[in-house]
Design a protein around this nucleic acid. Sequence first.
RNA 1: GGAGGUAUACCCAAGUUGGCUGAAGGGAUCGGUCUUGAAAACCGACAGGGGUGUAAAAGCCCGCGGGGGUUCGAAUCCCUCUACCUCCUCCA
Length: 424
Amino acid sequence: MLDMKYLRSNFEEVQAKLQHRGEDLSDLSRFGDLDKRRRQLINETETLKAKRNEASKQIPILKKEGKDAESVIKEMREVGDQISEIDHQLREIEDDLHHIMLSIPNIPHESVPIGEDEDDNVEVRKWGEVPQFDFDVKAHWDLATDLNMIDFERAAKVTGSRFTFYTGLGARLERALINFMMDLHADEHGYEEMLPPYIVNRASMTGTGQLPKFEEDAFKLADWDYFLIPTAEVPVTNYYRDEILKEENLPRKYCAYSGCFRSEAGSAGRDTRGLIRQHQFNKVELVHFVKPEDSYATLETLTGHAEKVLQLLKLPYRVLSMCTGDLGFTAAKKYDIEVWIPNQNTYREISSCSNFEDYQARRANIRFRRGPKGKPEFVHTLNGSGLAVGRTVAAILENYQQADGSIVIPEVLRPYMGGKSIIK
RNA sequence: GGAGGUAUACCCAAGUUGGCUGAAGGGAUCGGUCUUGAAAACCGACAGGGGUGUAAAAGCCCGCGGGGGUUCGAAUCCCUCUACCUCCUCCA
């Protein structure tokens, strides 16, 4: 959510900056009138309330003195009616305005490349050598099925499409990766570990920006106003919703493993095979709460922490700076990390690292105070995948495949795999 | 699932025959006196947060879990939601 006062006094500028986002900005144009009307009504109702407060103070005094208060009471009865009439109008306008504010995306940072879609994203750096194979590479779903690591068919029977059973060493590999990533971030990168709820309420989904605009992307529980989390970002960021943190408690950084659930509405037919696009997947998420002046430096370190996982796994990747048209709704700046997928002869997204500045903090009302006397300010929030586990499995299977269809286990994972060095 | 209870400021905690409580008191915190320094003691400050307004203020409005209502006026009465606690039931 943007700052209403800022939007009011910098409307043209904000509108221009949002222009390149490719979002529908029709709501934005209604802001000015509603905002004006709102302040006008507030003015009217508060004048009347001040009058009523004054009279309410006088009434007991009049009564005590034995004077007649009836005429004042009668007058205040009318004032009361006017107040409720105005407050009623005001409530409608404020609801409308609030909804509009929730529907305006974040302002891109000045360093974000301007562009329309994913073709305009800018490659920031590349790491690792793309492996060369002297045999025909197999897709990860074939490798995994042949090695009895994943059972797509039975998952389709038991649940439906876009779900998986990991079996045997497949299950073990998934679990090894979760532990490896969590250990790395907790022990080496200094994150505090968290295991969040997988189900959150509407306020939390609104706080991080999934709602109200993207409700169709979420799984909602029947008969409950609860949602399955699409990412641990939601529960972990909302951990501090409606709180004022102390300056000395910042920065806070958490790593959280969770299942993630996405309806993948609008993705029909895309990535239907394999692990790339599932309704349920595992992810290790990194979340930071920082002071505003630190957030852009933090975005770089955070991205580095995610990259470190790929470096240790020796998986080639590249980092892209997302352009204005591909930023997503809530980010001010975002890096995507893409891992090399040999069978598709391309890089595929495996992590997304974003600085939301105060956009989520304002929605979720997460603030901090500088010193004991400071005015509350909004924190800046950031998060990044560190990493999406299923996609990491896919990348390992494909990049580490051998001519005979076996898979060499990356060295750093072997302690987590019972010392095994190859899956065959 | 059944029965009952609680929800006041950073913490504890008064206040429910509606009106000098726009919120007592204590602790913590901050500032000071004393001290070589600290502790203790004593003195002082301490409702915050949001909105409106303004060049900035002042002023005004709203705040006693959230939301609605009754009333000239509500922490105090009514409705509703949420969280927590106790007992029973169930259960990993």
